[in-house]
Design a protein around this nucleic acid. Structure first.
Length: 369
DNA sequence: CACGCGTGGTA
DNA sequence: TTACCAAGCGT
């Protein structure tokens, strides 16, 4: 960087006859200018002119994958307060991290977060890679997140293409091919938009634009800084883009959950390390099956053989790819009952600290106090 | 490459 | 109430 005292020679003023019509600033310039005036203040975002902390950029980007800004806020604050650096995060047991992640969803992110922190700490000296390829090699970091970290934390000229950017670009160029087939074209167009300077600000500007102006429904074209460039707007089809292929219907499953009480404690179980809710604590349950529950078969799957009392009502929960309904069976275990395999007795008064995924927190709330 | 993988907010 | 949506990744 040149010394601050160095005088920058003023560019020669263009002669009046060459500038009869003011040339509109390039697309990216106008988006950056809009960002400078309207950027959102977010917990993980560095203030203007301040350097971004790669750790916080990484942490926030992982949390924000398929997750709303509103949902991430409290988790990001809790994580950065408890684990201020990647070294702190790497030093924590996985189960503690999973419990802190409970309720945020997509728990593979938490497992990858832990694996990534340990890798960065032990293999890379606690320093995040500053290249697209280096970042892409980290667990839990894909094309979007690598570009987001590279641009925001290191000002690498990379295009972070998320759902927001897909929507903005689809509309700017009136791309009518449905997603995901249109992804490669969108990626090319998005990369062509990235300015040489301020790539990180531009990435965040595009996401702010998509989140606050170019919204999925009822986009606010009247106050959009690039509405005049928008091909979809010109055709009046901005509200219909991006096109998406229809999702298939979610199956409906049922199961029996076992609310097993022993004095002041309740029986919880650690789930298998991978797959749905992998590694998380759960309220034990029978197999989740489509159709009706076979009561005797379900009871045979209980971790303890007890006399069961069906609680009134049911507990419903929607996952990404299926709907689930629990019937809750309550039972009392004898005082000397040892926890079965993968199970632990947990104080009922501290059930909120168990780090139960939301589906099981619902069951705990449904059970009698 | 299509699918598995959570949750809470919104119309 | 139902359906869709939100800063994707791994396999």
């Amino acid at each position: 960087m040149p010394p601050l005292t160095k005088r920058v020679p003023k560019p020669a003023k263009p002669s009046r006859k060459n500038v009869t019509v003011p040339v509109a600033a390039p697309l990216s310039d106008r988006i950056l200018r809009w960002y400078d005036r309207h950027r959102r203040v977010l917990p993980w975002r560095a203030l203007p002119g301040q350097a971004a902390d790669p750790y916080k950029v990484w942490l926030s980007e992982i949390m924000l994958q398929q997750t709303t800004v509103a949902a991430v806020g409290p988790y990001f604050r809790a994580f950065t307060e408890r684990w201020p650096t990647v070294a702190d995060l790497a030093a924590t047991p996985l189960d503690d991290l999973l419990a802190a992640w409970a309720g945020l969803g997509y728990y593979a992110r938490a497992r990858n977060l832990h694996a990534c922190a340990r890798h960065v700490q032990s293999e890379l000296g606690g320093v995040f890679p500053d290249t697209l390829e280096g970042l892409l090699a980290l667990p839990g970091v894909g094309p979007y997140t690598a570009a987001a970290i590279a641009s925001i934390a290191f000002d690498v000229q990379a295009a972070a293409v998320d759902g927001n950017v897909e929507r903005v670009v689809s509309r700017l160029y009136a791309i009518t091919t449905p997603l995901p087939a249109s992804k490669p074209e969108i990626k090319r167009l998005a990369e062509a938009m990235v300015p040489e300077k301020r790539a990180g600000d531009f990435a965040q500007a595009m996401m702010d634009l998509g989140a606050t102006i170019c919204t999925p429904r009822n986009p606010a074209c009247a106050i959009c800084p690039v509405s005049v460039d928008c091909a979809a707007r010109a055709q009046g089809i901005q509200g219909e883009l991006p096109k998406k292929v229809a999702k298939k219907a979610r199956p409906f499953k049922r199961a029996a959950a076992f609310w097993i009480v022993k004095g002041d404690e309740v029986l919880l179980r650690r789930r298998a390390p991978k797959g749905l809710l992998g590694g998380m604590l759960e309220v034990p349950s029978s197999s989740w099956v489509e159709g009706e529950i076979d009561k005797p078969a379900a009871k045979a799957e209980a971790p303890l053989d007890l006399k069961w009392f069906a609680l009134p009502g049911v507990v419903r929960h929607g996952f990404t790819h299926f709907e689930l309904e629990f019937t809750v069976l309550a039972g009392h275990a004898p005082k000397d009952a040892k926890p079965p395999k993968d199970c632990i007795w947990w104080p009922r008064a501290k059930i909120d600290e168990a780090g139960l995924p939301t589906v099981f927190a619902k069951i705990a709330k449904h059970a009698p106090g």
